[in-house]
Amino acid sequence: MTANAFIAFQKNEESRAIVEAIVEDNPGAIVVEQPAMVKVDVPGRLVIRRATVEDKIGRSFDLQELQIHLITISGHLDETDDEFSLSWLS
C-alpha cells in the first residue's frame, strides 16, 4: 500500500485556490475540512504547480508564499520555482 503524502493549510481565500490547484493536479487527492484548517492527502506523491495555482488565484504566485498558510506536511519535500512536491519513496 502506498502511504499518503499530505499537506494542511489554514483555511482562507488563498489556500482555497491552492487546494483547488492540488485537486486538479493530483488525481486521487482527498480533501478533509476541519475547523479552521484543510488537509489534503494524496497517495505516494503530492505536487503543487505554480502555473495551476496562478490560474486559480488570478495573479502571479511564488510557491514560497505557501509558507504563510502551511500547517503541516508529510513526505520528502522538493521545491523549485515551478513545483512543490511531497513524496514517499517506498
Binding site: 489554514q10 475547523p35 479552521a36 484548517m37 509558507q67 504563510i68 498558510h69 502551511l70 500547517i71 503541516t72 506536511i73
Partner: peptide, 22 residues
C-alpha cells in the same frame, strides 16, 4: 480544536507557529 471552541486568539497564535513547523 481551539478554533472549534471559538478561541480565535489561540487559534491564530497556534497556526502561526505551526506554519513554521513544516
Amino acid at each position: 480544536g481551539a478554533a472549534y471552541n471559538g478561541d480565535m486568539a489561540a487559534m491564530t497564535v497556534g497556526f502561526s507557529a505551526q506554519s513554521d513547523e513544516a
